[in-house]
Amino acid sequence: MKLNDLSEKLDLKAQTRIFDREISGVYISDMVSDVIANAKAGNLLVTVQIHNNVIAAANLVDIAGIVVTQGKAPAEDVVKMAEKAEITLFTTEMNRWQMATQLYEAGIR
């Protein structure tokens, strides 16, 4: 599924442009060492942990997009950094579990 289709199906707020990329799966984690070692290229990362080092890690392993849960707002420079790395950054009021359920129901497994 493309990031664009996902944002239409789910209640996600895009903080960056929505880049034309396919999502290959989901990884849910708030630990940076876990994200960089285990998230796969093309994954959608679901996390509450959002700062520039996380964007750097996500970019290094070619994560396609990030969903920041619990209504947390990423700082402006973090959004800029994601935009530059062509990582689509979404926010949602949902928690990680609700997000996971909706992603599963949307067909991303």
């Binding site: 708030d30 630990m31 940076v32 060492s33 876990d34 942990q49 700062h51 080092n53």
Partner: peptide, 11 residues
């Protein structure tokens, strides 16, 4: 900030 898992060197 999501660091301190003690997995850096093992990674």
């Amino acid at each position: 900030r999501g660091f301190g898992a003690g997995l850096g060197l093992p990674n």
